[in-house]
Every structure is written in C-alpha cells, then in structure tokens.
Amino acid sequence: MSLFIVNILDGLVTGLLLFMLCSGLTLIFSMMGVLNFAHASFYMLGAYFAYQISMFTGFWAGLIVAPIIVGVMGALIERYGLRRVHQYGHVPELIFTFGLALLIEEFVQFFWGRQQVPYNPPEALDFTAFAIAGNTFPAYKVFMIFMAIALFLVLLYILTRTRVGMTIQAALSYPETVQNLGHNVPMVFMGVFGVGTAMAGLAGVIAGPVMGTFPGMAFTLGAIVFVCIVVGGLGSLWGALVASLLIGWMQTFAASYNLRMEDLLIWLGFEKPTLMWESAWQDLWTLTLPQVGPILPYLFMVIVLVVRPQGLFGKRET
C-alpha cells in the first residue's frame, strides 16, 4: 500500500512535468493547425540556459531568467520564421519546425558538448521532505509539484477570467472574426507562441536536474508530448492536464509492477511451453509489464483516436 502511495506521487511529478510541456503545445497546435516538432527542443534549451546561468548566479536566477530567454527566442522565431512560412501552407510549417528541432540539437551539442552537464538541484532543496516506508521523497520533487500546479492555476485564470485570455480563445477558434473586430491577431499568435515556449523552457529548468541535462533529452520526451495533446484534445487546458496525469501514472505504474505475461496467459488457460527457447511464442511468454510500459501511452492514444477522435476534452476533430 505504501508503495502504491509513493507511485501515485511519483506519477504526479511525471504527469505535471509533462503538463507544463503539453499546455503550451496544445495552445500552439490549435493556433497553427500543425504540430510544433521543436517544442521539446525549447524544453531542452530551457534546461541548458538555466544550467549556464546557475554556474554564475545559482539555481534561482536561472529559474526566472532562462524561461524568459526561451520565450523571447520562441516569439522571435514565430515572428520572423514561422509567420513567413505560414503563407505557404501546413507542410512547409511542419518542415520548418522539424528543421528547427534538429538545429537546436546541433546548437546545444556545439556549445555544451555531447556529454551530460552537471546541472543539479539547489542546495536549499537538497534534503528529504518525507519518507513512506523507507521510500524517501526529495524536497525538490515537492517543489516541482507546487510549481506545476501554480502554473496551471495561473494559466487557467488568465485564459478564462481575463480579457487577454478571452481574446486568445476567440482568436484560436475564429481568427478572421477576431481580426475584423480590431484585434491584432498575429500579435496574439506571437504572444501565445512565446508564452508556450517559455513554459516549455520552465519545464526544462525544473526537470533538468532530475531527469538529466543532455542533448538527447528533447528526443526522449518529444513523442510523448504529442500523445498528450492528442489524447487531451486540442486547445484544452483541462484536457492537457488530465492526459498528462494519466500518462504519468501509466508510465510509473507500468514500470513499478513486475506483472508477467506468463501469469496472464496461464490465467487465460494457455499452457506454458515446456521448452521455452524452442517455442515460436517465446517473446510473448517472457514479456513483463515494465518492458511494455513505454508503448502503453501510444496504445492509449490509438484507442482514444478510435473511440473519441476529438480527444477527451477537445471540441473539434484532430
């Protein structure tokens, strides 16, 4: 039971971290109509910038400055890159973001090398917050949870309770009408892109010390972020939150419990082959849940797409 509670907490950390990436991407996705392949790269940039800043001033300055730098970079890329490509249609946009992702990876390798950089949690948070039956929970992870929840509440407030938020929501659904009403829609898009990338950067700043800061960090997270927005539904903040948490728990629990395919098959009434290594089904019989874990989110996405193509909380079809 105690392990179950610990896993719930661990899954919460993973899920909330994913949410910080997905919330920005889902807004950008519904705005552009195409995936931003470079979104996870901004996450990586956030971690590296924060590492560089933390070398001079410590962790806390990096926490504030790095996301701002990443956000400004994102806004500039939207203004001078994506907006020009936009007029040629979706495919060039897609290719542009894909190229951007490769470029950022090379950029990172050029400046910081291919090795992992020593980016660590601040000393102020380097202690054990509490322990459940011998499983300690680092204070830094508590900090991660609070940061993500605070970000969610702020976003939710801005999007649903303020004038700016209403303009954004309207511009996402009916850009022409909003433009005719006298709002500067390109400016809104640039702002959304900038804030979205800044949130990805913030996620990188927070995740870097825990998950490792290395040139492959964008790649390992890149695909799962797309699963999250497709499952959650386009442009839906609640959808992004629910989908992120589901995926976080799915991955954590899958890795934690050594359920074996063997037991399931025997329970289903199949007979275990006596000479396993000669059986054609050897791979199936020896599977364990932790091995299957990484593909579960993708399986989940396929099921959601079949049953509810607009996503759990989405209003329009993907």
Partner: peptide, 21 residues
C-alpha cells in the same frame, strides 16, 4: 533481476522505488 528499455526511460524513479522497497 530486471532489464529496462535502453535509452528510452525518461524517469528512473519507479525503478528506484522497486530497488528500495
């Protein structure tokens, strides 16, 4: 005695929990 996917684990916390418990 277990194997995890190579180069594809974002967060090793669940594995760490198993080791500790």
């Amino acid at each position: 005695n277990e194997l995890h996917p190579i180069g594809n684990v974002q967060d090793f916390t669940p594995y760490a929990r198993k080791v500790v418990s």
